[in-house]
Design a protein around this nucleic acid. Structure first.
Length: 263
DNA sequence: GCGACAG
DNA sequence: ATCTTGTCGC
């Protein structure tokens, strides 16, 4: 399953201005509403298969680790994808590519998008939905890594970030109860009308004790998923840990695969 | 000029 | 992201 928009594939050799122009194009091409065929209520349900008709959707989690070269510097990115269906892992794949540019806030997809697209290419199953470690629409030009890869592959996608890149929470996000969500709205730093709903701070897990608390995740539409569904999906997929299961498993697989290569 | 910034 | 020590809680 090749990319639908290879012309928008992230290219680390572009000038910064060209990268930003491409991101505006991606933000325009992106669909920030529900536009998928599967039933979102079956996402986190291990019994969905037994319950009835169609197979539950294939969900993939994507995450990266990094490899050092001879000089001890990071020179390669490893992207790991884990595919799940009905709560079970059905496939895994990974790819390694050279790092072309440093980490620059707002340009993450041009650093890590290459290995992600390769790993998705190698994955022997067609995903219905992808969850990324990073932003989607919560991005200066509404084109975070989840949106970028989603548009290039025309794949429904969701951004799951552990910290907020831009935008403004409508209210405090401190010490939210489990299951709570707080809207993240566009501000002057975002290329969108002020106040537009970019995504949600989502509290998947929380302590009972009052002294310490867990930070929320920042969930935003990547492509073909609305903000409500994005938050619903993350909550449904994060039953046991803070991170949604596909992303958590991709995280550990990225570490495992790194250890097997680096050696 | 200053601040602020996914992974 | 990666590194790394220390602490809390079941």
């Amino acid at each position: 399953m090749p990319p639908t928009r290879p012309d928008l594939a992230p290219d680390g050799s572009l000038e910064r201005e060209e990268m930003e122009a491409m991101q505006r194009e991606i933000g325009d091409a992106a669909v920030f509403d529900d536009e998928f065929v599967f039933d979102p209520s079956t996402l986190g349900d291990p019994l969905a298969t037994a319950a009835g008709g169609a197979d539950p959707p294939v969900i993939v989690g994507v995450d990266q680790s990094f490899l050092r070269g001879e000089d001890g510097e990071f020179d390669r990115a490893l992207s790991a994808v884990v595919a799940m269906r009905g709560g079970e892992v059905i496939e895994r794949a990974h790819a390694v590519t050279p790092l072309e540019i440093p980490y620059i806030p707002g340009l993450l997809a041009f650093r890590e998008g290459g290995p992600i697209l390769e790993a998705l290419e190698v994955l022997p199953v067609d995903p219905d939905l992808a969850l990324f470690d990073g932003s989607g629409r919560i991005h200066f030009r509404q084109a975070g890594i989840a949106t970028h890869v989603g548009v290039v592959r025309d794949l429904p996608s969701i951004g799951v970030a552990k910290s907020l890149l831009c935008g403004t929470p409508r209210e405090s996000t401190e010490n939210l109860p489990e299951g709570a969500r707080v809207p993240i709205e566009a501000d002057s730093s975002v290329d969108a009308p002020d106040g537009d709903l970019l995504g949600y701070a989502v509290q998947t897990r929380q302590y009972d004790s009052p002294d310490r608390y867990i930070n929320p995740l920042y969930v935003s539409p990547g492509h073909r998923v609305g903000p409500e569904t994005a938050a619903d999906a993350v909550l449904a997929l994060a039953s046991s840990y803070k991170l949604p299961e596909p992303v958590r498993l991709a995280d550990s697989y990225a570490e495992t695969a790194k250890g097997e290569i680096d050696h």
